[in-house]
Amino acid sequence: MTDVPHAIKGRGAASNPEGRFETIRHHAEDDGWQHALLDEERPRPKTEVTEERARSVITHNDSPDIHFAQAMNPYRGCEHGCIYCFARPTHSYLNLSPGLDFETKLRAKTNLAEVLRADLAKPSYVVSPINIGSSTDPYQPIEKRWRLTRAALEVLAECHHPCTIVTKNALVERDLDILAPMAREHLVQVLVSVNSLDNRLAAKLEPRATAPHRRLQTIKTLADAGVPVGVLVAPIIPSLNDRDMEAVLEQAADAGARCAGYTVLRLPYELKALFREWLALHAPQRAAHVMSLVQQMNDGRDYDSDFSTRMRGQGVFADLLRRRFEVACRRHGFARARELKLNVSRFVPPRKPSPQGQLF
C-alpha cells in the first residue's frame, strides 16, 4: 500500500515531492507497519543547516508590483515552515524539495556581511533601500545561532544605508540596539506579518513562526523604541483567515503600527499541490470551498502570475477584500506600507580592506 501523507507536528508540509527540475522520481511503499505507529512515535525530520559561500547577496527587482528595487536574503529555505510560502519552489533550484526539504534543509550564507561590504564599496553602486526578507524570513529560528541578519544590519548601520525588514518572528527585538539608532536617521522600517489571530490555525499554517499575539507585542516593542513599524496581513486565504483582517489591523494600530499592506494567497509551481495536500489534512470540510474562491481570484486557475493581479487577485471576492482593507485603513489612519520615505542621502560607502591598514 502506498504511504499516505500525514500531518507532522512542528512542520508545515506533510510530504517531500520532487522539485520540477528533478529527473528521478521516488515512490514510497508502505508495508503496513508504519501506520501502526502513533504520531508521536513517527520519526520527525530534523533541521539541517549547510554553510554557503555566496558570490553576491544583493538581488535586483524590476517587477512592477513589488515596491523595492533591491533585496537580500541571509538564508535559503525557512524553518518557519509556512505552508503558503511562495518561496518554496525556489528550493527546486538546489535539487531539493519545496516540501519538507524547504523547511528542514537550509542554507546559511556565512560570508553575507563580507560580500555585502564589498558590494556596497563598488564605485558603480547606486544606493537604494534594501529589503531584508523578501523571500525567506531573516529572523527564522536558526538566526539565533548564525546571526547573519544582525551582521548585515551592522554593515548597513555603519554605512548609513537604508533598509526595510519583513518578518513574523519576535527575534527582531534582539537587534533594537541597531534598529533604534538607524530609525533616528530614517534608515529603517520593519514590517511584521500577521495574517490571523487564531493561534490554533497559525500553529498549522506557520508552525515555527512566533504566535500572532506575540507578533502584535513585537509591533508595540518596536514602536515604543521609535522604530517605524507596519503590519502585513499576508497572505489572505479565503474562507480560512480572511475573517480576521479587520481585527488584525485594529490590534496592530493599537500596538503602534503606522502603515499596513496585504496580499492574497499565491500558489506558483509545486506550491499548488502542497497547499491542496495541507487543506486535505487540516481543513478537509472546507478544502473545496477554499480552492473555489482561490480560483475565482485567479481567472479560474489555482494561480495567475499576471503582475497586475497576482498580489491582490481579481473578481468579486478580491474586490471585497480590497474594499474591506481600504475601509479599515482609513478607520485607523494607516498609510500604505510602501509610502514611508527612507533617507538615502547619508550613505557612506565602506572602505575597502587595505593591507596597510587605516590611519583615520
Rank of each mutant, 00 (worst) to 15 (best):
residue 292 S to A: 12
residue 241 N to C: 02
residue 295 Q to F: 06
residue 264 V to Y: 09
residue 266 R to C: 04
residue 273 A to G: 11
residue 294 V to G: 07
residue 272 K to V: 14
residue 295 Q to H: 06
residue 278 W to A: 12
residue 250 E to C: 05
residue 236 I to D: 02
residue 247 A to D: 13
residue 288 A to F: 08
residue 245 M to W: 01
residue 287 A to H: 09
residue 250 E to S: 14
residue 246 E to A: 11
residue 258 R to F: 12
residue 268 P to R: 09
residue 291 M to N: 05
residue 284 P to N: 01
residue 247 A to S: 07
residue 251 Q to H: 08
residue 288 A to D: 13
residue 272 K to R: 06
residue 263 T to M: 14
residue 254 D to T: 12
residue 300 G to F: 13
residue 280 A to T: 14
residue 255 A to G: 06
residue 245 M to K: 01
residue 263 T to P: 03
residue 286 R to K: 13
residue 301 R to M: 05
residue 255 A to E: 02
residue 269 Y to A: 13
residue 303 Y to M: 02
residue 249 L to V: 06
residue 298 N to P: 07
residue 272 K to I: 13
residue 246 E to N: 15
residue 268 P to K: 06
residue 251 Q to A: 09
residue 240 L to N: 07
residue 238 P to E: 05
residue 244 D to C: 00
residue 237 I to M: 03
residue 286 R to C: 04
residue 253 A to D: 10
residue 262 Y to G: 02
residue 247 A to W: 12
residue 241 N to H: 02
residue 282 H to L: 07
residue 251 Q to V: 09
residue 293 L to H: 03
residue 262 Y to M: 09
residue 287 A to N: 14
residue 271 L to V: 04
residue 281 L to I: 15
residue 263 T to W: 11
residue 283 A to W: 03
residue 298 N to C: 02
residue 261 G to Y: 07
residue 301 R to F: 06
residue 259 C to A: 15
residue 279 L to P: 05
residue 258 R to G: 15
residue 262 Y to F: 14
residue 282 H to P: 07
residue 247 A to Q: 15
residue 278 W to F: 14
residue 237 I to P: 02
residue 246 E to C: 14
residue 250 E to G: 06
residue 271 L to K: 01
residue 268 P to A: 10
residue 265 L to Q: 12
residue 237 I to S: 01
residue 237 I to G: 09
residue 267 L to K: 00
residue 299 D to Q: 02
